[in-house]
Write a protein that binds this DNA or RNA. Sequence first.
DNA 1: CTCTTATTCTATTGTTCGTTAGAGTAGAAG
DNA 2: CTTCTACTCTAACGAACAATAGAATAAGAG
Lengths: 229, 229
Amino acid sequence: MATNRPSGRLVKDELYGHFSRIGKAVAHPKRIELLDLLCQGERSVEVLADRAAMSVVNCSAHLRVLRESRLVTTRREGTRVFYRLADDSVCTFFGVLRDLATDRYAEVDRIVQDYFNARDGLEPVSRDELLRMAGDGDVVVLDVRPAEEYEAGHIAGAVSVPLDDLQARVASFPEGAFVVAYCRGPYCVLVPQALEVLRREGFEARRLEDGFPEWRQAGLPVAVGQESN
Amino acid sequence: MATNRPSGRLVKDELYGHFSRIGKAVAHPKRIELLDLLCQGERSVEVLADRAAMSVVNCSAHLRVLRESRLVTTRREGTRVFYRLADDSVCTFFGVLRDLATDRYAEVDRIVQDYFNARDGLEPVSRDELLRMAGDGDVVVLDVRPAEEYEAGHIAGAVSVPLDDLQARVASFPEGAFVVAYCRGPYCVLVPQALEVLRREGFEARRLEDGFPEWRQAGLPVAVGQESN
DNA sequence: CTCTTATTCTATTGTTCGTTAGAGTAGAAG
DNA sequence: CTTCTACTCTAACGAACAATAGAATAAGAG
């Protein structure tokens, strides 16, 4: 009996062929960026194209690839088509992929150090620390993502102040408040910019170690829609 | 202030570019098969080419891609070059990828059902069950992988009987023994073939739910080299 | 030094992928 | 029915990838 009977080879080829469908789906930077955005929640093609800085046609083509790999599904609402992750396990997979890249590529860590830590200079606040602070009640939790992302889901008790509005609204914050800002994930570029504004205005501001998807996946309290505070 | 400053876009492109290096590495079925083999332990180019049913030249080219993505590293010993995973986290990533594919593609489950379960007809034995049975001492644990894979690492107490030798050596097994066979992972094709032989010879034989890498990653007892039993 | 083995490099060819432009479709509003 | 918006499909073309053959290299044996 040969070690690899023909049928065994055929089965293997078919199995690994399916495994590689996932690989092909995440073999392009823009598709990974789209997955990252979709880890936040459902988004329309137009919004995804804008956030990922690509043409709508090109974005649609990449989303098609993701849909054919069954990592995302769609829902039509009027003229708009909304894409979302097919399952929460896709978000988990993205997290493992991101962590592996951080682990294997020192460059990633360098980029993060240079861009994020060099800008805010302070260690990020962990999820546990934030929960403790929130229990003590002397912290403002700031969601600096665009308003519609906040409404699709945010950390319970957080205030929505999109980065573009921050400069205008920062004056209304209680004097001497301690502020913790978060956005889409550990490498989102919105928070460093927000911290810059906040510190310039004299607030003590730190960033949450990671973003909303990680918070949600950890099973911590989230809220949807507007909050009346 | 614009939501996406140019520097933010550049940083994002660089980050997602690095993330996609992992994706590109696993975008080909043969490279995934090579990673799966390397999850077992270190292997030479020749052995990998044979196991994955590809030419040595082609195998070398794919290994080069994996090495450039830093998922594997090499070690030279005489004229031979040995490849191994760069880190255990690569094995974890492979597991998550495999599970996601199983989750998302019903075909994978169907293949597994058709090929594996239809052949052995019985539920696999879980790791915990096997440990309990081993404690009671009335079970033969069979490693049906090629001898050099056994020697590179195996379940402590397991007996090495490569599939090709099984027919010849099955006669020497204790009459009426209960046999649990394992190989490379949940989808390895060696075990179903082994169970077929064992049952034909009148033994009660089941398969372990998954293979050696999962056992090792679970922190359960492993051994290296020959065992004197 | 030559020969052998194991592996890698180079060049070539065919195939797939990514992007863009332009046309086409589905649904809502007038 | 027409018009608008949001999205998708088709075709085209350059870029990247995969497989193969043949040459080249590195290390050990004779």
